[in-house]
């Protein structure tokens, strides 16, 4: 079985400052990985670099996604290949309705696969199905992307988009931050319903709490730009108990 994602000796930074200092990570189909670690340790940088955000420099190492080196690909090409990022801070896009946004994203994906644009009826049916999955209100369809959404709605909306786009690899960057327990539960339920033997998740979080709901196969502790310790879900509990002095 080939891994979905393989990161080898990744060194990267921004503005000449090295943030990732030789990171290695292998994610296989069907796996959920949790990455934990203190602030400023490079968790979000890792998410940005995997998804191809501009402004970062990769100085060494490689990122192989589905047996393809993706470092030279644009963000949209990586997305079309099947990488999804659930944003820590979902961006408001005034004037662009959720419906139009999703239609454009779905059609971009279909075009990439050589398919015609989705039929309106089929698209609406799909919207309804996926909305039910994450329990978000129907009215968001006509609203501008994330505009005026509560913190919980924004995060649920990320999961909704993930459900629509059905990625091979989803990276959820602190999806739990700022959520009350009910929202946290419905976000986690959404993720659990989307788990399959063919896809994989990387869940970035500060707190063990989320991992009660999204049970990881492997937990990594990231510190100073590297993964310093990996283990099963018990590692998260241990970390919660002992704090980061566990790895210092």
């Amino acid at each position: 079985m080939n891994p979905i994602l393989e990161i080898k000796n990744l060194h990267a930074g921004i503005g000449g400052k090295e943030i990732l200092k030789g990171l290695n990570l292998t994610v296989n189909p069907g796996e959920v990985h949790a990455i934990m670690g203190p602030n400023g340790t490079g968790k979000s940088t890792l998410a940005n670099i995997i998804t191809g955000r501009e402004g970062y420099e990769v100085t060494e190492g490689e990122i192989i996604f589905k047996a393809k080196d993706i470092l030279s690909l644009d963000p949209e090409e990586r997305a079309l290949e099947g990488i999804f990022l659930g944003f820590q801070y979902p961006v408001e896009i005034p004037g662009v309705s959720m419906t139009n946004f999703m239609k454009a994203a779905i059609d971009a994906k279909r075009k990439y696969k050589g398919l015609d644009p989705i039929k309106p009826g089929e698209f609406l049916k799909m919207m309804r199905e996926k909305q039910a999955l994450v329990d978000i209100p129907d009215k968001i369809k006509n609203r501008s992307v994330n505009e005026g959404f509560s913190g919980g709605e924004k995060k649920k909306n990320e999961i909704f988009q993930m459900a629509m786009l059905d990625p091979d690899l989803a990276i959820l960057d602190e999806t739990d931050s700022g959520l009350d327990i009910d929202a946290l539960r419905s976000v986690a339920e959404g993720v659990n319903k989307l788990r399959s033997k063919d896809n994989a998740f990387i869940v970035i979080t500060h707190y063990q709490r989320l991992l009660d709901y999204i049970v990881p196969d492997i937990v990594h502790i990231m510190y100073d730009g590297k993964i310093v310790k990996s283990g099963d879900k018990e590692l998260a509990l241990e970390l919660e108990e002992k704090g980061y002095k566990l790895v210092e």
Binding site: E76, A79, L80, F101, Q161
Partner: peptide, 26 residues
């Protein structure tokens, strides 16, 4: 808005179309 541009591109929409979407919305 560069943040919005990246957000839209991360959903598989090309840079040019992401710009168009934003300008049209404006």
């Amino acid at each position: 808005d560069e943040d919005a541009l990246f957000y839209i591109r991360q959903r598989g929409i090309s840079k040019r179309d992401a710009q168009l979407l934003q300008l049209y919305a404006f």
